[in-house]
Design a protein around this nucleic acid. Sequence first.
RNA 1: GGUGACGUGGCGGAAUGGUUACGCAGCGGAUUGCAAAUCCGUCUAUCCCGGUUCGAUUCCGGGCGUCACCUCCA
Length: 454
Amino acid sequence: MTLRIYNSRTREKQDFTPLDPGQVRMYVCGPTVYDYAHIGNARPVVVFDVLARLLRLEFGAKHVTYVRNITDVDDKINARARAEGVPISEITARTTAQFHADMAALNALPPDIEPRATAHIAQMIAMIETLIARGHAYAADGHVLFHVPSMPEYGRLSGRDPKEMLAGARVEVAPYKRDEMDFVLWKPSDAATPGWDSPWGYGRPGWHIECSAMSFAHLGASFDIHGGGIDLIFPHHENEVAQSTCANGAGTFARYWMHNGYLMVDGRKMSKSEGNFRTVHELLAKAPGEALRLQMLTTHYRQPFDWTQTGTQEAKTVLDAWYRLVDGVKAEAADIAAGVRAALEDDLNTPLAIAEMHRLAHAANQGAPGAAKALRASGEILLGLFALTAEQWFHWRPPGQKLDETEIQEQIDLRIAARKARNFAEADRIRDALASRGIQLEDGPGGTTWKAVS
RNA sequence: GGUGACGUGGCGGAAUGGUUACGCAGCGGAUUGCAAAUCCGUCUAUCCCGGUUCGAUUCCGGGCGUCACCUCCA
């Protein structure tokens, strides 16, 4: 029952002891809502969903507060709105709904609180005023900038030396900056760009301040875990640390930093120019969400993940086997396998947890008492699997490709009759005909069932 | 140029100073009318070179290789 997590800040695995065991607090950077979530957006959602599930088991569901924000103010959103000729609210509302649907398909539970940036502009302005008052920020030319040299510790989280970074950096230095490293807290908006009134004129927040303001608003100055993708460690998280600790006091803010590794596709960085960009939405058209989720968990969260079609197929095959065992099995938290739990308690070692699941499945197939229950409880409660019935799982088809289940059953009945008459030629003909349509039959002790294969 | 991660069997992917990870795929067998599913069995591995050690895949050094980041991409 000792949870250990790797803390990016100290670069070592540590025992997890919450500030307040009665209220464990976690903040994870959520999406900027301007387009469909891609598979890289989904990784932190799934990873920290497993962590949230584990924390709820360890400390009790009511004693965990999981916050994941929606960033609904951003220049990419503005650009998209301009391109489509619609208000940004239309872009953000639509994209947020898509995000929720996609993450739900991956069995990721909603966070306890999902704050939106546009609902926290006042808090951002207040924090910026504090930073100015404390000498960590200054207004210049309609902008407000965080003055990096005012914080000697800057760069500690990401392990970067600001001076060395400048050597090879391709930074265009705006004339109003006192130091090349200074970053924007607030910037002016013209009439055509969304903005809010502020002490520095009509404008909008810079990129990093929203997470500082929202974590403070919902979790307080200090909280336990801050998560996100490793690509965010610099500059986003570094700047969050700068903003929050300079505004709220040294020693505040996140105590454990967790970063998931990069996501690649077919061995390469995923990018639109590479042509290997994958949205969750389009992947869900090819495989059930649970297969994508299990695939995502086969690699430890801190390792780079290579997304492949083969990997999806493998995850599907594994779930085929598990679904055969857990269907109709009732299980509760007490049934969770110690091995699965222990694996997750060791810095969220999901590959090891999955190996334990395989052992349980094997034991269940051999008839070991309790194994199927343990498999279901571990998968359902901790890993976030088995949300479907076995029938739903095996009959899954891509959206829009409905099968005529009644007709399939009729064929199966005809085949059963043929088999009874020992007319195996006819029985095999029916089976082959169904197989050619992607319907695979299985004659089990309880009768004939079928599954859709691709 | 700076920083970081990583190199395990056909593939995916853990762990570990000394004893088969696990899965997918393959192969042999059982079962089945034949299949499917399941069971039993089985093949293949720790990038290279040094060092420490009784012993290294694991620790240290060097090399080679891959990937990523260095201001708005999770």
